[in-house]
Structures are given as structure tokens and as C-alpha cells.
Design a binder for these strands. Structure first.
Length: 872
RNA sequence: GCCCCUGUGGUGAAAUUGGUAGACGCGCCGCACUCAAAAUGCGGUAUCGAAAGAUGUGCUGGUUCGAGUCCGGCCAGGGGCACCA
């Protein structure tokens, strides 16, 4: 007999039992039970599982197990987002093939995940880097191409002029290429785009139906789509017939305009530069630097005065200078803006720098002076001034008025603009889904014939030199045109990996060999009932997946518009970062904590850096395997669920895992104490570890399956039974709401109470019920206890216990008594005491009388069941 | 720079959504058991104070009988910003 839970023997035993019983295989789509599709964002196979994964997958697992116990048909799959840049980086650094590296990582991580004891249907596992997945994605791409949702256009990339390769944003460090150190340039390439902007309005409106999404995510997406109404108008170049088209969201400030600025790659800028070397230099200068919004917006605002002027559309005698400016982007709007410095900070900075007029047109208070003072633009509401026919209007009235005038006079029109841009999916990389098109010198761009899918990546590639291995592969891209038979070339761009993650949730629901998915089967499971993942995916992944689903709906492949009915964004698991004196990142295991701060193994001082999301590149990951070895899966699971609210970031610390291990053993001892005592060390239980758990009764004991609702009880037993029923209701509600930390606290309260209770039938009943209550969270221990107490079958298959609502009601309440909002006393009163009785009782309180000191209360506020506040 | 979020004891946090701040843990302190240790159990633990009491939810101002919760301004930390996933 032992008083310790032994996870090293127990964990594998029950994991095997679940596998043998096919417990977690997905029921067929025809299953009559309500369907529940629980999905966690699938991982990138970086090599090892870290605590962020453990947190994510434990949460989903608790939910999936609880859903099964409450009578749902559950789909809970797992797969791998296995294309992407890290595999190519590994190939360059370690001379391994990206595929070999990725597949080895998947095997290692799968092994780790299995140790967690997840209730996953592994028969549906998928990996996006395998042709059976990406080939189907190519088929969907061709569908989109046919439906007119795909097109090519020029767009800007980060170009490393030394390595002659396209860089990802994260490969640009302080404006330089990460490997070469060369100053990065902007370069235009012809690239493939998906028309997400066709769905801008739908995607915006759809947010309204996503009631079970966090408000903050909906807000972020709304801002990202960025619908705005404005004016598209033309400023005519002085003395010529040409005009510059400008879009503005602030047409009300048109009389405050003091310049027009165009992008460095605006056609007019190029035209002017042909015989202006200074402008050529300026444009070349604008090409330096990265392509990200953050870089562009924090870079110094610079302009080049072209010497040209334009006429103000409302007063042709008013001429404004035309600048080429580095902060105007050709990709947004029309690639040209007018500047109203008084009411836009960026324009004001620009105007002060180049000594341009700053005219006030929105009055904040009484100040109508046309000359605007100071360096802080006024962007708030106000009354229009210095603006002729707009004077006296509000900002909104002026916007409407000027748009109406422009349309009437024919120099502009109102326009709805979205910030959202089309989705550039081209990547000049090897490790991604090949874009299934062919370029023929005679026939143009052609889709790959369907029967030729999948277009499989060649295996024989080298990463010795930078650039796209597909492009320089000796044979892969060459073929004969399927139309005219002449020599042609394959597209060598691959798809953005966000494409892979934009439909994997559909493939999980249905995975036929001959098509991406079966419509009816997919519709039976979708939309996902609960999607769980990191907040870092709040915009891009979730928006692309929503778009992809709507695009599939549009072409008739599936009849749902939103893929994720409920979304939960978990907080990240963070950890301090460490670096040695040379600035190299160190992992936590390489650190020795000393009296004078942490050092390296050889005694050099370690810099403790920022606390950041666990990531391989910063080496601040914590591997769960040593913790599985020491404490088992349940203690690790319990630890991840305890304490921190799941949506909040969690700074990893190891103190505490000991505490959860102790708690696991406290429950274990409760199982051991159930009356009638069970026999120990029974059937086939001896193992090398010596510490063997109970494994069932030997027949003659009281039958314990279908634990009965307790008979009426009194006294202490009633108190415990009430607490039990409160725990059943509370834990179930907390799990459904993904408030696992609260479910854990309630489990603690129940266990504390059971431990204090004297042996009785009610106590035994509470312990048997406890096995079911913990089954979703710490399933191995629950199974072990269930079996030990003689429960039939697997606890995973048991129904979630019922609770009696009558037992949740208390007949007494403790209320607060305040004087002037300060707590002075508490009273225990009957639950249904009326206001007058509460007021009288409060005023009778000795402590209240002492504070009042003979004074007469001015007012008494009574909140029944809560408090009495006496205002003196 | 722009958008979003977070901030409560030594520490992770809870607070029925405007009504008793600190539930439940971790840690720590004390005691019991033990030859001893581990494990386990019992008690204590916001701060100041001998006590009465006072103070206290990042800072600051406001609304309210009453604010951790609502509003304004600030500070700090985190996420995203379209080629990290």
C-alpha cells in the first residue's frame, strides 16, 4: 500500500486505456448528440513543446473532456502548421533539409503532447507541409483564381542588396539585413494577391454577429478594416490640364490646406525626376529603410519641394506647393494627400519644418484667429472658422456640406475607404505551398491543370546561397505549356503560411482523399464551437481565416460565413530573457543564480533582459519534460490551470509546482479513505516503481457504480452536501466559461471541507463525486481514483454529476453595516429580512452607535442581502 | 508613431460586474509528529499601531450615500502594425 500517487506508472496506463477504448475518436457526423468542435490553434513545429503550448492545449482539453461528460459529440483534433521560415533557417544553419527538420520536430513534439494525456482524436492529425494537405490547398487556390478572387500586381518588399534576397520584416534589424548587414532597400516585385478587400464590408458587419468573441478582438479587427468616409478630389496643376487625385477623411479642413504631398513612387514623382537629379536623390533616399508601418511612421518626416503648385479646388487663385514626401504611401488611397497642419499632427510637424502656413479652421473655444500657434495639432471637435460657406458648422456638418458641394460642382466625390489592403500571398521561399500556375511566353499566366495537382516541392534543394531555391532549381520550374506545348515555367513563389492556417479547421472536420473537404460533413461540425489561441493572432490569422471561409461560401464550397463561433484568447506564457556578456541569448538552464545576480556556468555575469513571450529565438523557453518526469502530467496540468486567469499573461515561475503536486496527493489520500475500504495492490499492479496505486475492489464490496444522489442528511453532513452541490454547479459553470482558475479554487474549497469532515456516507459520496469533478482537469488521477473506488468503466465516460438547486440556497446572509461608506460592523440576518428590519438592526448596532455618537442619520441606504449604509 | 490590453499583500490572484478588498493558492513564520530529515497535520501571515483605530487596489483629478469596478489626465508593462507564427 502506498500513500503517494505514482504518475510514472499511472499516466501511461490510462493513456493506453483511452487509446485501447478509442475513447476520444470523433463520432460520425450523423451522431445524434449535440456537436461540439473544440479547437486550439495548431502549433508551429519549432522543435520542443513549451509552457505556452501546455497552457493552450490543457485549456482546450479540459473543455473537450467536460463537453463529452455533458453529453456532446466532440471533435477535438490536432495538427501542425508546418510550413514556414524557421525550417529554412535551420537548413542554412544546420545543413538539414527543411522537411527532415520539420518532421523530426513534429515527432518530438507529438511525443511530448501525448504525455499531457490530451483527449485528442489523433486519427485526424494533419500537417500542412505534406502534399495531401497543400495539394488540396492548391485546388482551393485554383477555385479562387477561377472566381476572380486572385490577381497579380506590383508591391514592395524588403530587399537585401548584398544577399540578393527578399527579407521578412523580422529579418530586418535596425534597417539592415540580419545576415549581410547591408542597408535594406524597398523593391517592387510582381506578386499574387487575394481580394480580401472585396469582403471588407462583410467582414466588418460580420463582427457584429460574433457575440462570443472578446470585445477587444472585434475592436482590433474593426480598426484594422478601418472603414472611413471621405472625399476623393482633384487638385489641378497650375497652368496644365493635369490633376493630382487626393483622398481625405477630413474634407472639412479643406480651407486649412497648405500643401499637397505625393508618394516617392507616385507616377508624377518619377516623371518629374527624369531631369531633376536632386529629386532622384531624394527618391532614392526614400527607398532606403524597411517596409513596415512602424518604421515608416517613426522615421523622420522628409519632403522635397517640386516647385510645382496646384490650384485649390474651391479657389483657383489660391496656389499650394507640391512636395514629394516619404510618409505618403502609394499603397494607400491615391498615393497623394493634402496637408492641413492645424488639425493633423504629422502635417503640422511637416509644415513647421518647411515653414508652411498653418491656418486654423476648427475652433476649439473662442479662438478664431486664423494663425495657429504651437506644435500640437488640434484634432478634436469644434466649430468651423476661416472657411467661407462652412463657417459656424460642426465638423460633421462641414464634411457633409463640402462633399455635396464637390459632387455638385464636379471636382470630387464622397467615397467610402477601407484601410484594409488586399492580401499579398506571394513568398519568394522554398518551404511553402507552391502557387499552382504556369507562365507561358505565348499564353500568359495559366492555372495548372487539376489533374496535375498536387504540385509537389522538389526534395533536392540547397540552401548554401540565399534566395529562392525553387527559382534556381535546375529542372523543377521548367515544363511545357499545357495549352500550346511550348517551353514554359512554373510559378516559383509559394503561398504565405497564413493561407495554410486559413482552412485547416475545415480539413479537420472532413478529410476526403479526392477533394479539400466534403461539404455536408464539414457543415455538420462547423463552425468551431470554441476556438482557443494566443491574443497575438487577434488580427491577421483570424481575419484571413474569416475571409477564406467567406470566399469558400461565395464559390459555393461551404455554407457558413463565420468559422469560429466562440473565441477565447489566452494570455501568453512569458519568461525573463538572459544574455551573456557578448549579447548571446542564454536559456534558463544555462544560468546559475548566485548572490551577486545570475552568472553563466563559467562565472561570467548575465544580463537579465525583458520579460517576453516564450520563443525559441530568445531562448527563454521552459521545456515541460523534466516536470512530467518529476511530477507527472496531472500536476503540470493543474498548475497551468491554477491561479492565473487564462486570458492574462503568465510569467513562468517554477515555485508552485511543488504545491500542486502536494494537492494531487491530498486528493489521492481522499480516494484511499473511502468507506468501505478497498483492497490494495490487486490485479496485475506490481511494477518496478514500487509505488503502486489502488486498482479496484475484489468483487464483494458494495456496488459503487452510479453513485446515488444522497439521502436527506442533517448537521455536518448537510453542510458538506451543500458545499458539494455548490462545487458541482460552480466548477461546471467555471469550466464552461473557461475560468479554470476559479474552478481550481472551488475544488480546493471542496477538498478542504471533505478532509475536515468525519467519515460518513455523505463524505464518501462527496469523494466519489470529486473523481468526476476533477476528471476534465486531472484525468489520470481521476481514473485511478475512480477505479480504486470500484467505479465502472472509465471516469472519462461518466456523465457530469447533477446538482440539486435547492441545496444552493442559504437561509442566512451576512450583511455589511457602513457609516458614510466605511465598514463599521457586520450582521448575520435571515435571508429574506426586509429593509425596515435591516435598518433597525443596523442602527441598533453598538459599533454604529459609537461612531454616530448621538448624531441623527441624514439618510439610510439599504441593499437587501448586501449592506446598510448610514449617511450621517 | 498608430490600434488594443493590463496594473490589487512578499508572490499568483479573488471580489456575485457600483455594495464587507485580499476568497483560493504559493512562499514565509510558529507548533505538532520524528533520533533526524522528508512527507503530513494544526495555527498565523496587507501596512502602520501595544490597542482603539488609521491607511490601503500604478499616479492624479472627478461622478456617487458608496469606486478595484464608471469618467478625464498621466505613468509603467505587454500584444499587434500586413513577409515571425
Amino acid at each position: 500500500m502506498t500513500s503517494r500517487f505514482n504518475p510514472l506508472s499511472s499516466d501511461p496506463k490510462w493513456q493506453k486505456a483511452w487509446t485501447d477504448a478509442a475513447t476520444f475518436l470523433t463520432p460520425p457526423a450523423s451522431d445524434p448528440r449535440p456537436k461540439s468542435y473544440i479547437l486550439e490553434m495548431f502549433p508551429y513545429p519549432s522543435g520542443r513543446i513549451h509552457m505556452g503550448h501546455v497552457r493552450n492545449y490543457t485549456m482546450g482539453d479540459v473543455l473537450a473532456r467536460h463537453k463529452r461528460m455533458t453529453g456532446h459529440a466532440v471533435l477535438h483534433p490536432m495538427g501542425w502548421d508546418s510550413f514556414g521560415m524557421p525550417a529554412e533557417n535551420a537548413a542554412m544553419e544546420k545543413k538539414v533539409h527543411p522537411g527532415a527538420w520539420t518532421r523530426a520536430n513534429i515527432e518530438a513534439m507529438k511525443k511530448q503532447l501525448k504525455r499531457l494525456g490530451l483527449a485528442i482524436d489523433w486519427s485526424r492529425e494533419l500537417s500542412t507541409c505534406e502534399p495531401d494537405y497543400y495539394g488540396q490547398e492548391q485546388a482551393l487556390f485554383l477555385d479562387f483564381l477561377k472566381a476572380g478572387l486572385v490577381y497579380r500586381k506590383e508591391s514592395t518588399v524588403n530587399w537585401d542588396p548584398v544577399d540578393m534576397t527578399v527579407l521578412a520584416n523580422e529579418q530586418v534589424i535596425d534597417g539592415r539585413g540580419w545576415r549581410s548587414g547591408a542597408l535594406v532597400e524597398k523593391k517592387k516585385l510582381n506578386q499574387w494577391f487575394l481580394k480580401i478587400t472585396d469582403f471588407a464590408e462583410e467582414l466588418l458587419e460580420g463582427l457584429g454577429s460574433l457575440e462570443r468573441w472578446p470585445d477587444k478582438v472585434r475592436l482590433m479587427q474593426e480598426n484594422w478594416i478601418g472603414k472611413s468616409k471621405g472625399l476623393n478630389c482633384t487638385f489641378n496643376l497650375t497652368g496644365t490640364g493635369d490633376g493630382i487625385d487626393v483622398f481625405t477623411t477630413r474634407p472639412d479642413t479643406l480651407f486649412g490646406a497648405s500643401f499637397v504631398a505625393i508618394a516617392a513612387d507616385h507616377p508624377l514623382a518619377a516623371e518629374l525626376a527624369t531631369n531633376a537629379p536632386a529629386l532622384q536623390d531624394f527618391i532614392a533616399d526614400c527607398k532606403l529603410g524597411g517596409t513596415t508601418a512602424a518604421e515608416i511612421e517613426t522615421a523622420e518626416k522628409k519632403g522635397f519641394n517640386t516647385g510645382l503648385t496646384v490650384e485649390h479646388p474651391l479657389d483657383s487663385s489660391w496656389h499650394l506647393p507640391v512636395y514629394v514626401a516619404n510618409f505618403v504611401l502609394m499603397d494607400y488611397g491615391t498615393g497623394a494627400v493634402f496637408g492641413c497642419p492645424a488639425h493633423d499632427q504629422r502635417d503640422l510637424d511637416f509644415a513647421r519644418k518647411y515653414r508652411l502656413p498653418v491656418i486654423r479652421v476648427v475652433a476649439e473655444g473662442d479662438d478664431e484667429d486664423s494663425e495657429f500657434e504651437g506644435d500640437v495639432a488640434y484634432t478634436g471637435p469644434g466649430r468651423i472658422v476661416n472657411s467661407h460657406f462652412l463657417n459656424g458648422m460642426s465638423v460633421d456638418e462641414a464634411k457633409a456640406s463640402i462633399i455635396a458641394t464637390a459632387e455638385q460642382e464636379g471636382w470630387g466625390e464622397g467615397q467610402t475607404q477601407y484601410r484594409l489592403r488586399d492580401w499579398g500571398v506571394s513568398r519568394q521561399r522554398y518551404w511553402g505551398t507552391p502557387i499552382p500556375v504556369i507562365h507561358c511566353g505565348f499564353c500568359g499566366v495559366l492555372p495548372v491543370p487539376r489533374q496535375d495537382l498536387p504540385i509537389v516541392l522538389p526534395e533536392d534543394v540547397s540552401f548554401d546561397i540565399p534566395g529562392n531555391p525553387l527559382d534556381r532549381h535546375p529542372t523543377w520550374k521548367h515544363l511545357n505549356c499545357p495549352n500550346c506545348g511550348e517551353p514554359a515555367q512554373r510559378e516559383t513563389d509559394t503561398l504565405d503560411t497564413f493561407a495554410d492556417s486559413s482552412w485547416y479547421f475545415i480539413r479537420f472536420a472532413s478529410q476526403p482523399d479526392d477533394k479539400p473537404f466534403d461539404k455536408a460533413e464539414a457543415e455538420a461540425w462547423l463552425p468551431v464551437g470554441q476556438y482557443i489561441g494566443g491574443i497575438e493572432h487577434a488580427i491577421l490569422h483570424l481575419l484571413y481565416a474569416r475571409f477564406w471561409t467567406r470566399a469558400l461560401q461565395k464559390i459555393g464550397k461551404i455554407d457558413i460565413s463565420e468559422p469560429f463561433d466562440a473565441l477565447f484568447t489566452q494570455g501568453m506564457v512569458t519568461h525573463a530573457t538572459f544574455a551573456d556578456p557578448d549579447g548571446k541569448w542564454l536559456s534558463p538552464e544555462e544560468i546559475i543564480e548566485g548572490g551577486n545576480g545570475p552568472t553563466t556556468q563559467d562565472g561570467r555575469a548575465v544580463t537579465v533582459g525583458r520579460i517576453e513571450k516564450m520563443s525559441k529565438s530568445k531562448k527563454n523557453v521552459v521545456d515541460p519534460d523534466p516536470m512530467f518526469d518529476a511530477y507527472g502530467a496531472d500536476a503540470v496540468r493543474w498548475f497551468m490551470l491554477s491561479d492565473s486567469p487564462p486570458e492574462r499573461d503568465l510569467e513562468w515561475s517554477e515555485s508552485g509546482i511543488e504545491g500542486t503536486w502536494r494537492f494531487v496527493n491530498r486528493i489521492w489520500r481522499l480516494f484511499d479513505s473511502v468507506n468501505p475500504p478497498h483492497k490494495w495492490g490487486g490485479v496485475g499492479e506490481a511494477d518496478g516503481g514500487g509505488a503502486v496505486g489502488p486498482s479496484g475492489v475484489d468483487g464483494a464490496e458494495t456496488p459503487l457504480h452510479h453513485f446515488a444522489v444522497p439521502l436527506p442528511v442533517t448537521g455536518e453532513d448537510l453542510t458538506l452536501t451543500k458545499l458539494l452541490h455548490r462545487a458541482i454547479a460552480g466548477i461546471g459553470a467555471d469550466i464552461s466559461a473557461l475560468q479554470f482558475n476559479k474552478a481550481v479554487a472551488k475544488t480546493h474549497e471542496l477538498v478542504n471541507a471533505i478532509e475536515k469532515a468525519a467519515p460518513s456516507a455523505s463524505r464518501d459520496e462527496a469523494i466519489r463525486t470529486l473523481a468526476r469533478l476533477i476528471a476534465p482537469m486531472i484525468p489520470h488521477l481521476a481514473e485511478e481514483g475512480w477505479a480504486a473506488m470500484g467505479g465502472e468503466g472509465l471516469v472519462a465516460d461518466q456523465p457530469w454529476p447533477d446538482h440539486d438547486p435547492a441545496l444552493l440556497i442559504d437561509d442566512e446572509a451576512t450583511i455589511a453595516v457602513q457609516v458614510n461608506g466605511k465598514l463599521r460592523d457586520t450582521l448575520t440576518v435571515p435571508k429574506d429580512a426586509d429593509k425596515a428590519a435591516l435598518e433597525a438592526a443596523a442602527l441598533a448596532s453598538e459599533k454604529v452607535q459609537r461612531v454616530l455618537d448621538g448624531g441623527i442619520p441624514k439618510k439610510v441606504i439599504v441593499v437587501p442581502g448586501r449592506l446598510v449604509n448610514i449617511v450621517a
